[in-house]
Design a protein around this nucleic acid. Structure first.
Length: 289
DNA sequence: CACCAGGCAAGCC
DNA sequence: GGCTTGCATGGT
């Protein structure tokens, strides 16, 4: 990968295993939006950037080389060799098809707190509405920043939200999830749940810690660990994955009550990424099982 | 009008 | 432990 830059853009040539659409539309993030020209704009790490692609040439706007090296290179997971992982995962024909279909998916290294709240909101909800609720949260409590004369809002820290109770969040229209958000705000601010440990604790303990928050069960905890803590050894099971696994891996799953452990056993240390290829493959094709 | 959306907690057994 | 039900809101 070759890097060049000027005053407020950074250009990368020869970026492999990366598609904007696959990465931003595979369901892992909620604050990136596609522009008319196929580029995407989004807010992350307290900043707003735009990113465009022509073949394997990527350009990031409204940033600079130092910021790229310190923030965005890690955010887009550019130092990880996805080609090797895809080969390791492609032990069967189904995963070969799924990785070929979503070849450009990269797991964004998103902020842990933002991911935690976002996936609490995601439960039993649809993606457009999830995005609306998160946007209202950011407009109400985040910082306003500008790019190209347009206002964007950062995701509010837990310190910023300290003291919020469910009634304070009614304007988000998050429904019954408001009390879950409030519980997360309380438990993270009080230290009942220590987010600084989530990336390093043994996986089981990290998950149990997250599940101390009301509104976080297995699925949300797994998404938070995968998308917000870079832990690829979890296998989040939602309605799509359950259907996909039963339909595509019937020998393993027809009598397997626990699809989650089945996924862990089949796909191993990168089962989280396998799950994401499967999810994108199944949902994007509206596969019926 | 039903039924569903990247589930979960509470209440049963 | 497993199974069932209610849950806020908005879209189809």
């Amino acid at each position: 990968m070759n890097i060049s830059f000027n005053r407020n853009t950074v250009t990368l040539n020869g970026v492999k295993d990366f598609s904007l659409a696959h990465t931003f539309l595979c369901g892992q993030c909620f604050r990136w939006n596609e522009n008319d020209d196929g580029s995407f704009s989004g807010v992350a790490n307290g900043r707003v950037i735009k990113i465009s692609a022509v073949n394997d040439n990527i350009t990031l706007y409204n940033t600079n080389l130092q910021e790229f090296n310190e923030i965005w290179s890690n955010y887009f997971d550019f130092s990880r060799n996805y080609d090797e992982i895809k080969k390791e995962l492609s032990k069967d024909e189904i995963m070969k098809r799924a990785t070929a279909y979503g070849w450009g998916i990269r797991i964004l290294q998103q902020d842990l707190w933002e991911t935690l709240i976002s996936f609490i909101i995601s439960q039993s909800n649809n993606i457009p509405r999830i995005k609306q609720i998160i946007e209202r949260l950011c407009e109400s409590y985040g910082d306003r920043i500008f790019m190209d004369g347009k206002a964007y809002y950062t995701f509010p820290s837990y310190e910023r939200l300290k003291g919020c109770v469910a009634e304070d969040l009614a304007h988000l229209r998050a429904g019954y999830r408001a009390k879950y958000i409030a519980d997360a705000v309380y438990k993270v601010n009080s230290g009942d749940v220590d987010l600084s440990l989530i990336k390093t604790l043994p996986l089981y303990e990290a998950k149990q810690s997250l599940m101390n928050i009301n509104g976080i069960g297995h699925k949300v905890a797994d998404c938070v660990l995968l998308f917000g803590a870079g832990r690829f050894g979890v296998f989040p099971v939602d309605t799509w994955i359950e259907k996909a696994m039963r339909g595509l891996y019937p020998c393993v799953c027809e009598n397997e009550k626990n699809i989650r452990t089945a996924g862990e056993n089949i796909f191993g240390r990168y089962c989280g990424l396998a799950q994401q290829y499967l999810f994108y493959y199944a949902r994007d094709n509206k596969l019926k099982f």
